[in-house]
Lab assay of single mutants.
Amino acid sequence: KLATQLLVDLAEGCHTHHFNSLLDIIEKVMARSLSPPPELEERDVAAYSASLEDVKTAVLGLLVILQTKLYTLPASHATRVYEMLVSHIQLHYKHSYTLPIASSIRLQAFDFLLLLRADSLHRLGLPNKDGVVRFSPYCVCDYMEPERGSEKKTSGPLSPPTGPPGPAPAGPAVRLGSVPYSLLFRVLLQCLKQESDWKVLKLVLGRLPESLRYKVLIFTSPCSVDQLCSALCSMLSGPKTLERLRGAPEGFSRTDLHLAVVPVLTALISYHNYLDKTKQREMVYCLEQGLIHRCASQCVVALSICSVEMPDIIIKALPVLVVKLTHISATASMAVPLLEFLSTLARLPHLYRNFAAEQYASVFAISLPYTNPSKFNQYIVCLAHHVIAMWFIRCRLPFRKDFVPFITKGLRSNVLLSFDDTPEKDSFRARSTSLNERPKSLRIARPPKQGLNNSPPVKEFKESSAAEAFRCRSISVSEHVVRSRIQTSLTSASLGSADENSVAQADDSLKN
Score class of each variant (00 low, 15 high):
Arg123His: 07
Ser234Trp: 06
Ser136Glu: 02
Leu184Asp: 01
Ser211Cys: 14
Glu151Pro: 11
Val81Pro: 03
Gly156Pro: 09
Gly166Pro: 10
Val55Asn: 01
His122Cys: 04
Ala118Ile: 03
Ser224Asn: 10
Pro239Asn: 13
His88Pro: 00
Cys233Leu: 08
Cys139Trp: 02
Ser230Phe: 05
Ser120Gly: 07
Val132Gly: 10
Trp198Asn: 00
Gln190Arg: 06
Gly156Met: 12
Gln194Ala: 10
Ser136Tyr: 01
Thr79Ala: 07
Pro127Arg: 07
Leu121Gly: 08
Asp130Arg: 07
Met84Val: 07
Ser230Ala: 12
Lys193Pro: 01
Leu189Ser: 02
Lys199Asp: 15
Leu201Ile: 06
Glu210Val: 13
Leu121Cys: 12
Arg106Asp: 00
Leu232Thr: 03
Pro100Ser: 05
Arg80Gln: 04
Pro161Thr: 10
Lys215His: 06
Leu62Pro: 01
Gly163Thr: 10
Pro239Val: 10
Ser51Ile: 05
Tyr93Met: 00
Ser211Leu: 14
Tyr93Asn: 00
Leu121Ile: 06
Thr241Arg: 08
Val204Lys: 00
Ser103Gly: 10
Ala102His: 03
Leu124Val: 15
Val204Tyr: 00
Ser237Trp: 11
Leu85Trp: 00
Cys233Asp: 01
Leu208Thr: 01
Leu189Pro: 01
Glu83Trp: 06
Ser224His: 08
Ala248Gln: 08
Arg246His: 10
Gly247Glu: 09
Ser182Pro: 02
Gln90Asp: 12
Val187Glu: 04
Asp130Trp: 08
Gly131Tyr: 03
Leu201His: 01
Asp142Met: 03
Thr57Ile: 07
Leu208Pro: 00
Met235Pro: 01
Leu189Asn: 03
Leu184Tyr: 05
Gly156Glu: 09
Val204Phe: 00
Leu228Val: 03
Leu201Pro: 00
Pro157Trp: 12
Gly251Thr: 06
Ser96Arg: 11
Pro127Cys: 05
Cys191Asn: 01
Trp198Ala: 01
Ser136Asn: 01
Phe219Asn: 13
Met144Asn: 12
Leu192Gly: 00
Phe219Arg: 08
Thr68Cys: 10
Leu52Ile: 06
Arg244Cys: 04
Tyr97Gln: 02
Thr98Asn: 12
Cys233Tyr: 05
Leu124Ile: 14
Phe252Lys: 02
Ser221Lys: 02
Pro209Gln: 12
Arg106Ser: 00
Thr162Gly: 12
Tyr214Pro: 02
Leu99Gln: 04
Pro249Thr: 08
Asn128Ile: 05
Met84Asp: 04
Glu250Val: 12
Leu63Gln: 13
Lys215Phe: 03
Leu126Gly: 04
Leu124Thr: 05
Arg80Cys: 03
Leu236Cys: 12
Asn128Glu: 06
Leu189Val: 08
His95Ala: 08
Tyr181Arg: 02
Ser155Arg: 11
Ile105Phe: 01
Arg213Ser: 08
Ile218Gln: 03
Leu85Ser: 02
Leu201Phe: 02
Leu205Arg: 00
Leu205Pro: 00
Leu242Phe: 11
Leu66Glu: 02
Ser104Met: 11
Glu145Val: 12
Lys240Arg: 08
Leu121Lys: 12
Leu188Met: 08
Ala78Cys: 05
Gln194Phe: 12
Arg106Thr: 00
Thr98Trp: 07
Ala173Val: 10
Pro137Gln: 09
Tyr138Pro: 02
Gly251Asp: 08
Ala58Asp: 01
Lys129Cys: 09
Gly251Gln: 07
Met84Lys: 04
Lys153Leu: 13
Asp197Leu: 00
Ser237Phe: 07
Tyr138Phe: 15
Leu245Thr: 02
Leu126Thr: 05
Arg175Asn: 07
Thr98Ile: 07
Lys69Gly: 01
His95Tyr: 08
Lys240Ser: 12
Tyr97Arg: 01
Lys129Pro: 08
Gln67Asn: 08
Arg80Leu: 03
Arg244Gly: 05
Pro161Glu: 14
Tyr97Ser: 02
Gln194Val: 08
Pro180Asp: 08
Arg134Glu: 06
Thr72Asn: 10
Leu63Arg: 12
Ser155Leu: 11
His95Asn: 10
Thr57Cys: 10
Leu242Pro: 04
Leu99Val: 05
Ser182Phe: 06
Leu205Val: 02
Leu212Trp: 00
Ser136Pro: 02
Ser136Trp: 01
Val204Asn: 00
Pro74Trp: 02
Glu145Arg: 07
Met235His: 01
Gly125Ile: 02
Ser120Tyr: 12
Ser224Ala: 09
Met84Tyr: 01
Trp198Gln: 02
His92Met: 01
Leu212Ser: 00
Thr57Leu: 06
Thr72Leu: 10
Leu66Asp: 01
Thr162Asn: 13
Arg186Glu: 14
Met235Lys: 01
Thr79Ser: 11
Val140Gly: 05
Cys141Pro: 03
Arg175Trp: 06
Arg244Ile: 04
Asp54Val: 02
Leu91Asp: 08
Pro127Glu: 07
Ser221Asp: 03
Cys233Pro: 01
Arg123Gly: 02
Phe185Tyr: 06
Ser196Phe: 08
Ser104Ile: 08
Val140Ala: 05
Glu243Arg: 08
Arg106Asn: 00
Gln194Cys: 11
Asp142Gln: 05
